[in-house]
């Protein structure tokens, strides 16, 4: 594919920016910077991956995964700045969700001890954990803010922070898992999974491809479930001062 085709495709981003300008949405700058950032990151990652795949020592693979987890935690934590210690909470959620899933897959032999298995699949796991953590964090703030008066009523009736924050936490977790659940429901019907398609194109047997893809789907669901739950449980706890009162900063607008 030539660069002129890439420029042609970029016209779609320009179209989205034009629509944003026309409708006064104010997201033109984000779209522009986001598209440039994605291009630069992918170019850099192309070269880095090429080098990473030449690595032999397992410690190096895991250092790469640790770096990915930290970056994901910062990005996700920034989504929940109203929650005290949001980055640490994101790190706990993404770290635990990714570690559990990775360990299960690694122990089961789905992920082989090679850079070209560990790094892309690890990245996929961390990325999914980050999505679930960001959604959980973002939704938790919204739910707590929305339920502020009910929460105060429950606290004033003698409820604990856990009791008062239970319903907002439940709603936040449900919302965080909607994309994962919808994705499982529509897999093979609406979107065709990349790994399975790649296996088939490379000449692999359909059954092998399906087995690998199913493992990936379960992996994504498990990671999102663990990351979302950890973020919501720790996040709710951080939003209360013991059983005394809620300490979530008020959101403007």
């Amino acid at each position: 594919m030539g660069f002129e085709i890439l420029l042609g495709v970029y016209a779609l981003v320009a179209l989205a920016m034009g629509m944003s300008f026309y409708r006064n949405l104010g997201i033109e700058k984000d779209l522009f910077l986001g598209s440039i950032r994605a291009t630069v990151q992918l170019i850099a990652m192309g070269f880095v991956l090429k080098w990473l795949f030449t690595l032999q020592e397992a410690e190096n693979f895991f250092l790469v995964l640790l770096f990915m987890t930290c970056v994901a935690a910062v990005i996700s934590g920034n989504r929940g700045r109203a929650i005290p210690n949001s980055r640490i909470i994101a790190l706990a959620g993404i770290g635990l969700g990714s570690a559990v899933t990775f360990t299960v897959l690694y122990t089961a032999g789905v992920i082989k001890n090679e850079a070209n298995y560990i790094i892309p699949i690890g990245g996929m796991i961390v990325g999914n954990a980050m999505n679930a953590a960001s959604l959980a964090m973002n939704r938790l703030i919204g739910e707590l803010e929305h339920a502020r008066k009910r929460i105060e009523t429950l606290l004033a009736l003698g409820g604990s922070a856990r009791q008062a924050g239970e319903e907002p936490a439940r709603q936040a977790l449900k919302a965080a898992l909607i994309p994962t659940i919808d994705s499982m429901k529509t897999i093979g019907l609406v979107h065709l999974p990349g790994i399975m398609t790649g296996f088939l194109i490379a000449g692999g047997s359909p059954l092998e491809a399906v087995k690998f893809q199913v493992a990936v789907v379960y992996m994504i669901a498990g990671t999102a479930g663990i990351a979302g739950t950890v973020v919501v449980v720790l996040g709710v706890r951080q939003c209360f001062e013991g059983n005394l009162r809620m300490r979530l900063e008020r959101q403007d607008g």
Partner: peptide, 9 residues
């Protein structure tokens, strides 16, 4: 505090 709030509604 939970006991207090049951006594001070």
């Amino acid at each position: 505090v939970r006991h207090l709030r049951r006594r001070v509604g």
